[in-house]
Design a protein around this nucleic acid. Structure first.
Lengths: 342, 342
DNA sequence: GAATCGCTTCAAACCGCTTTGGATAGCCAA
DNA sequence: TTGGCTATCCAAAGCGGTTTGAAGCGATTC
């Protein structure tokens, strides 16, 4: 059942039927009601492909996922972000297109997405310092929103981000207030912008109390369980081990916990741990009582906000750059306590 | 730059240019070379929307993701599957469309995907016993491949699955061989088909040694860390606790580990643990030496295979039902050992 | 020399919708 | 009566490709 058939059945022109269904004013309300009823009765759904060609809009948004060579983006955090964004897209009749491509094809993918007209806009994931994708997308004229920020970008751009610096600064201050002085940082990969900001927050808080950086207490790597385990284990083996560890994710925090317990220490008494909690749906930080003290910010909500922003940017290309900074909450759990007496 | 412009520039008709670029035989090879060169020079990329309308194919595949009310599908396993499938799609110039919809809209989503012509086929995730989606998709005539199987389906359908029954049977036998008799099962939700099969494998292995089921050693729930923790904790608190636990995922296994260590027991000595390892890229079961003894099967590879199967089914609608059963490996790690002397 | 054939190429229809630019009819003021 | 509005509706032209049916043309065949 297509538009022409429906129009014939109704004894109307395709023009009128199309207008009736799309809410245009130049159609008699009685006629409109008749058309709508007939459309429902005959289970008419306009062909998306035809709409797209006729309107010149893709009604789709792209997420390009480079396959890991340097950094695995297909991680639990990504999944939750996608879920949040996807809610918004389907609510607005947009398709979400995921392109999984080799690292080196990423630029070509954006260009082809634009020139072949597959999408109306894209979301940039996991931005780095001076991320090359920002000038690229500006150049090819594809609307975009960045999930995160990219320090060093020349001009303003659209982004949704958590205040990572402040979050880690507060977490560090919280530990300092508990008397901790030697605080380890198990960070993400520090060519990622968010990881840089977290480190900055951590260092700022330490510096404010006159504590300088100690490289042996600072680790940067993939945020896996194993990586968190090994980094924590190494720190605990130091002559002067930390009394607290700040972890960049729930998963690396679980690795840290394994290392601490493996060393026969008790979390919250001998060693305090704070994690960053993305509030993942299938990896809750406890149910009623949080397992870990954490800086919490829902990445799913960030996905919703970024998607909404992108749709807004697509609809209003000339509105200025949109920006949204989210604050993380500091959630007190069972993994922190006063620094043990020396 | 579109086809007509390019044709004009070349002094050819759009027909010939189209055919030259699409490899049709009825075009002079010299002309074809000239066309291809011009297309490259002018950076011509055919408009996807036009191709789709003209050919009547969507060149896209859908993955419908119901938002959690009963079961959260947006989990790490799902993310890796998607990554694998996505590789295949982009290699074949197909788009991967993710539809995130409320549970109750799932059926409507499939119907609209079909009638609006957004996709050429779909992949069904997380099938249940007598899954309603299978007859539904057959009814509306949308090609599909199931990731997993659905016990009770009336007619054969396309699927890619791991031999879950055999995997858990072997894992259980392995534990039995080590002298374990009281073996706990921390399973996924048992309205999911894979969880049912795993339970069957576990029970079959026990029954073969004359051991009957003990409900207090069998848990079924979401595969989260917390759920694994609580289930294991409860089992360990029994008057006659298990000496081994079989977990349905890496994540619930991590919860089990926490419970075991929290009880002051040593894994691999006091309690053995076997998990099912989906070989997730960001949640490796150790690096060189596996942390957990595990039944391993790459869900990413399953995603690749399912995607390939779907593209094949789309291209050859009349080929019979395709099926692919993968066997899991049994990987020996550090989490298992002989049953402790009573 | 005419008919046939294979190789190339093209004009035009078509995919299913949107949108522009009328056309028609009813109604009211002049 | 007539011109001007307004309210409705429609024919036709796109959107940018693919595909059908036909035609031009030199070579071959009879």
């Amino acid at each position: 059942m297509n538009l022409k058939e429906l129009a014939t059945k109704l004894g109307l022109s395709p023009t009128t039927v199309s207008r009736a269904l799309n809410g245009y004013p130049e159609v008699n309300e009685a006629t409109r009601a008749r058309v709508i009823a007939a459309a429902k009765r005959h289970n008419y759904h306009p062909n998306t492909r035809a709409i797209r060609l006729a309107t010149g809009r893709a009604m789709a948004v792209g997420h390009v996922i480079p396959i890991a060579t340097r950094h695995e983006i297909v991680n639990p955090v990504f999944a939750d972000f996608i879920a949040g964004a996807g809610e918004i897209y389907s609510r607005n009749d947009y398709d979400m297109i995921l392109s999984v491509v080799a690292d080196e094809d990423e630029e070509a993918t954006y260009r082809s997405l634009k020139s072949k007209g597959n999408v109306d806009g894209v979301i940039i994931h996991a931005p780095r310092l001076n991320d090359a994708r920002i000038p690229l997308l500006r150049e090819i004229g594809l609307p975009f929103v960045v999930h995160g920020r990219s320090t060093g970008a020349a001009e303003p751009y659209n982004w949704v981000d958590v205040n990572n610096r402040r979050a880690f600064q507060r977490a560090t201050e919280f530990l300092l207030d508990l008397g901790h002085v030697r605080i380890g940082l198990v960070n993400g990969l520090e060519f990622m912008d968010f990881a840089i900001r977290r480190r900055t927050g951590y260092l700022d808080a330490l510096a404010a109390r006159g504590i300088g950086p100690d490289p042996s207490l600072m680790f940067s790597g993939e945020m896996t369980e194993f990586s968190g385990y090994r980094a924590s284990q190494a720190m605990l083996a130091l002559p002067r081990p930390p009394t607290a560890i700040l972890c960049s994710s729930m998963i690396s925090g679980m690795g840290a916990r394994r290392a601490v317990e493996g060393a026969g220490l008790v979390i919250g008494r001998d060693i305090s741990i704070i994690i960053h909690d993305d509030d993942l749906s299938y990896m809750k930080n406890g149910e009623d009582v949080p397992i870990f003290t954490a800086t919490r910010s829902s990445v799913r909500e960030a996905g919703r906000l970024a998607a909404e922003m992108l749709l807004h940017v697509i609809a209003h290309p000339d509105a200025g750059p949109q920006q949204r900074l989210l604050e993380a909450e500091l959630i007190i759990g069972q993994s922190t306590g006063p620094a043990p007496k020396a």
